[in-house]
Amino acid sequence: MARVLVLFAHPALEKSRVNRRLLKALPKLPGLTFHDLYEQYPSFHINVAYEQALLTSHDTIIVQHPLYWYSVPPLLKQWMDLVLEHGWAYGLRGEALRGKQIFLVTTVGGPASSYTHEGFQKHTLRDFLLPIEQTTRLCRMHYLPPYVIYGTHRLNEDDLVREAVAYRRLLEWVHNHQLPFDGSATQSYATMNEAMAALAPEVMV
C-alpha cells in the first residue's frame, strides 16, 4: 500500500467551487495524509524540518492546486524554495526523495481544447508546468502526468459531483490498486485522467 501525501495549496479555498468539492470527496484511508499548506503557514513561514519529515515518510506525493497565471500559487513556490534543500533533495548527497512518485492535481479555468499547440493557449498544460517537472527530476523523483480538471468555470452541479467522485476513485486507486502504485505505466498518457481511464476502467463509472 502506497503511503500518499496530498500537498494542498489554495490561497482562497473559501472562494473555490471545485477544490472545495474535491476536498470533501477525500477518502479517509490509513496512510493517506492531507496537508493544507495555506492553513498551516498563513504567514509563509514554513517549518522546513517538518515538511522534509513528511516527504520522507510517504511514497507518492500529490500536489493539488488551482492554476493561476499558468503556474502554482505562491506558497507552493516558497515551499519548493525552502523545503527542497541542496544536499537533501538534490546535489551530490541529495538523495532523500529518490524514487518517490509525484504528480500534480490541477484545476484549470480554460477548456481542455485551448491547451494544445494549435489552441488558444499555444501550449499544453504539461508545457506550462515544465519548471515543476524538471524540479522533481532534479530531485530524482518520478514525475507522472498531471490530473487535470479543465473548464472549471463551466462546471455545473452535476459536473462537480462527477468530478468529486472521480477524484475519490483516483485517490483510492493510487492508494490501493497496485502495491505499491506503479506510475511508470501512466507515463505514455498526456494526463492522469486518460491514464486512469485506460489502465483502470473498472474503477471509473
Binding site: D81, E85, H86, G87
Partner: peptide, 8 residues
Amino acid sequence: AGWDPDSL
C-alpha cells in the same frame, strides 16, 4: 538554507 546557494 533553500535561499542560500553556499553549499551548492
